[in-house]
Each structure stands twice: as structure tokens, then as C-alpha cells.
């Protein structure tokens, strides 16, 4: 899309663009280029010399069972996070749309988790589920709550009211489908990256690497393990994944712009 009527001149727009371009080059392109360079090199043990090793870092990373396990965990974790977030979000949105009384309060409160950092949410749940003092952990242990019973009750209440349900699947959901797809991609990207804080806070990648997602591994191998070549190769692989996801998203946005 382009504007028909525009202003003339080139100096003024270039000046307007300059600050953003400067920050972009210094903190985006330069480090990204460094990551790519680093990923095809290896430093000796003393950090005195580096040599070109072509794809060696990549074959090492991709052949590393720990890396593959981490990739698998990341995919599972992202699908779980995005799926749960979208399903519950959609459920609450549809329900909030059906009520009149209290709708504003429901919407405000259900919007609040957006403002809470995953790391902080992690601390709250850590406190609730702390094995020795966590109030939920203690209650569960003492009462032995039957979760299956609870789920059955929820299911029964959900089946109730078949006609609003049919209306949802035939009318509301098709209308929401494009938005849902967009949100799915955004949520997967979110699960990939923004969950570093909750992992670092709550599990530190453990137990036995069970929650070591790719971003955590990049950070750990680079900043703690100081294996720069491997960390850089992992960064480049992550970049490729994000580029793929962004391309999908962008195609989708452009389509919406054209047909909207």
C-alpha cells in the first residue's frame, strides 16, 4: 500500500529515520552479523586465536542429543502454552460476551495477567506450590482432592446449553478464525522467547534438563558454559526459526490488509 499524495524532499525524511536506523544497525544488524560470524568459527581454549570451522558448530549442535531434546521440549512447551492460552482466552472472551451484569469487571480482571511478567507469575505459583509451605501443595496433600471428579463437573456444565455452543461453532468461531491464527503465531513466538524468565526463576532448566527450552540453552551454553561457537550456532538456528514464523505471520497480515 502506498500514499498517493506525498511531500517532496529527501533530507528531512532521512533525518527522521536516522535515530531508528542507528539503533537498528548498532544493536540488531551488527550483533546478528557477529553471531553468524561466530557460528562458523571456534576459539582455542585460551581465547587467543579463532579459526574457521565452517559448519562444524552446527553439525555439533544438531548432532547433540541434549540439543535435540531441548528442541523437542521447546516445541511441546510452546504448543502447550499457546494452546492453553488461546483456548482459555477464547473461552473467557465468548463467556464475557454473553453476560451483561459484571461484564466490565470480568474483562478488567481477566486482562490483568497481561500486565504480569511471566517471571513474577512464576514466583506467585512457586509460593503456592512450594512443597513445604505452599498453601495449594499442602491442601492437596491433606485433602487428596479428586481432580477427575472436578473435571467431570466442569465437563457436565460445559455440555449444558447446547444451542449457544452450536452458535459458537457455526457463527462466532469462523469469524474469529483469522484472528485466532494470528494469535497462535504470536503466542508461539511468545512461548519461545518470553518464557525465559519463568524457567530461570522456577526450574533453572531442571529437573535433569526437563524444562531446558532452546533460549535457556543458548543463554546457559554462552553465558555460563562460555562455549561461544556453539551458543552462536544455536542463536543462528533460532534466528532461522523466528524468520520462518515471521514470514508466515507477515503473509497473513498482508492478506488481511489487501482484503480488509
Amino acid at each position: 500500500m502506498e500514499r498517493r499524495v506525498v511531500f517532496s524532499g529527501w533530507l528531512f525524511p532521512v533525518l527522521l529515520l536516522l535515530p531508528q536506523l542507528a539503533v537498528t544497525v548498532v544493536f540488531f544488524f551488527w550483533p546478528a552479523a557477529q553471531a553468524i560470524l561466530q557460528s562458523v568459527r571456534r576459539e582455542d581454549a585460551f581465547g587467543l586465536s579463532t579459526r574457521f570451522v565452517a559448519a562444524e558448530n552446527f553439525t555439533a549442535v544438531l548432532g547433540d542429543p541434549f540439543y535435540l531434546a531441548s528442541a523437542e521440549i521447546t516445541v511441546l512447551f510452546s504448543i502447550a502454552v499457546a494452546g492453553l492460552a488461546l483456548a482459555s482466552g477464547l473461552l473467557f472472551a465468548v463467556m464475557a460476551d454473553r453476560v451483561v451484569r459484571g461484564a466490565a469487571i470480568y474483562k478488567t480482571v481477566l486482562l490483568l495477567p497481561y500486565a504480569v511478567a511471566p517471571a513474577i507469575a512464576g514466583v506467585l505459583w512457586l509460593f503456592l506450590f512450594n512443597p513445604s509451605i505452599g498453601i495449594v501443595a499442602v491442601a492437596l496433600r491433606r485433602l487428596g482432592i479428586d481432580w477427575n471428579y472436578l473435571l467431570d463437573a466442569l465437563e457436565a456444565s460445559a455440555i449444558d446449553g447446547a444451542s449457544p455452543r452450536r452458535r459458537f461453532w457455526t457463527i462466532v468461531f469462523p469469524l474469529l478464525a483469522p484472528t485466532s491464527f494470528f494469535l497462535l503465531v504470536v503466542n508461539i513466538v511468545y512461548a519461545f522467547f518470553d518464557t525465559f524468565g519463568i524457567i530461570h526463576n522456577v526450574t533453572q532448566g531442571g529437573p535433569a534438563k526437563a524444562t531446558e527450552i532452546l533460549v535457556y540453552k543458548v543463554w546457559y551454553d554462552g553465558m555460563v558454559g562460555l562455549d561461544l561457537g556453539s551458543s552462536a550456532a544455536q542463536s543462528v538456528i533460532l534466528m532461522a526459526i523466528v524468520i520462518g514464523l515471521t514470514a508466515i505471520q507477515f503473509r497473513f497480515i498482508e492478506r488481511r490488509v489487501h482484503y480488509a
Binding site: P31, A32, A35, W219, G222, M223, L228, S235, L238, M239
Partner: peptide, 8 residues
């Protein structure tokens, strides 16, 4: 997150 070390 994808350019941690070089940005640092």
C-alpha cells in the same frame, strides 16, 4: 534472545 552474546 537470538543475539544474546554479541549484543552483550
Amino acid at each position: 534472545e537470538v543475539r544474546i552474546i554479541p549484543t552483550y
